[in-house]
């Protein structure tokens, strides 16, 4: 298998490289890709959508339909991980508790843990003592990360950024929190249900905007028909429409990253994990 694979791959690679001799040179301004369609986007983005960042305007307006299905793809991935992995078990098996005054770890089988006492703290079976340096730095940084993420989402019209990037950064901040403390602490703050509903909400904001345009006006996702609702002219309505769907993308991406992380890191149990 290995030898066969190597030979096939060398052949494929050789063939692929051989045929590149007819391709346009790297950075050739006269290549068909650069002169057929893209000049339209570059020259008309301001008059069509009033968004200087061409990537944003193409992503969320000219090819917004692609982007709607991009958010749908991550919804699909979240649902797929949930369907494949999640083990919704209510039964309590073996659990470990730390007696905080003494530092002794106790093991309780089943549900025999003394409910009323607050000197015990639940820990994972592969628990390691919390490191104060890591904990402190992460708690300090998470706020900055989230503020930066909001900046990236909101400033996508004028600088590199947008819904997807900002959503990833927010999701990463919450995953950083889960890593620096533990999975349970982060599930307590943003549960699985919230993550799932946020994901669906994000896609719904996007697709709902599209459907609203279709109900008011003519085409799916044609934001210019939102102008009477937003109280602006048709071009600024496109700019605002882009912003609305970017928020949808950000919410969906943020939530789905957390959702997938919960399921993958605990193999679906969401009881113990990183």
């Amino acid at each position: 298998m290995k030898i066969l694979g190597t030979i096939t791959i060398l052949l494929c690679g050789g063939l692929l490289i051989f045929f590149t001799s007819d391709f346009p040179d790297f950075g050739d301004p006269k290549s068909p890709a650069s002169i057929h369609l893209s000049p339209y986007f570059i020259e008309h983005t301001l008059e069509d959508t009033a968004v200087p960042n061409i990537v944003t305007s193409v992503l969320a307006d000219y090819r917004s339909y692609d982007t709607m299905f991009e958010t749908t793809v991550i919804l699909t991935a979240g649902l797929a991980c949930f369907l494949l992995l999640r083990i919704p078990t209510k039964e309590v098996t073996r659990r470990y508790y730390l007696h905080e005054p003494t530092g002794v770890t106790l093991r309780f089988d089943g549900d025999r843990y003394p409910k009323g006492s607050n000197v015990f703290k639940r820990i994972d079976s592969n628990w390691v003592p919390y490191d104060i340096i890591i904990n402190f730095t992460c708690r300090l940084l998470i706020h900055f990360i989230q503020i930066f993420a909001l900046y990236v989402v909101a400033h996508g019209h004028y600088s590199p950024g947008g819904g997807f990037q900002g959503g990833v950064v927010i999701g990463a901040s919450i995953i950083l929190f889960a890593i620096s403390s533990n999975l349970r602490a982060s599930i307590k703050r943003l549960g699985e249900k919230a993550a799932a509903i946020f994901t669906a909400t994000g896609v719904f904001i996007y697709a709902g905007t599209g459907a609203l345009c279709m109900v008011i006006g003519e085409h799916f996702l044609n934001y210019s028909f939102l102008a009477p609702l937003l109280g602006t002219d048709r071009i600024m309505a496109r700019s605002h429409g882009i912003f609305i769907v970017e928020i949808g993308v950000a919410v969906a991406v943020m939530a789905v990253m957390i959702w997938i992380y919960y399921n993958l890191s605990s193999a679906g149990k969401q009881d113990e994990g990183l």
Binding site: Y62, R63, F220
Partner: peptide, 10 residues
Amino acid sequence: MAGWAAPVGI
């Protein structure tokens, strides 16, 4: 889709 004609939009 989104009101853009053929080669520009989808």
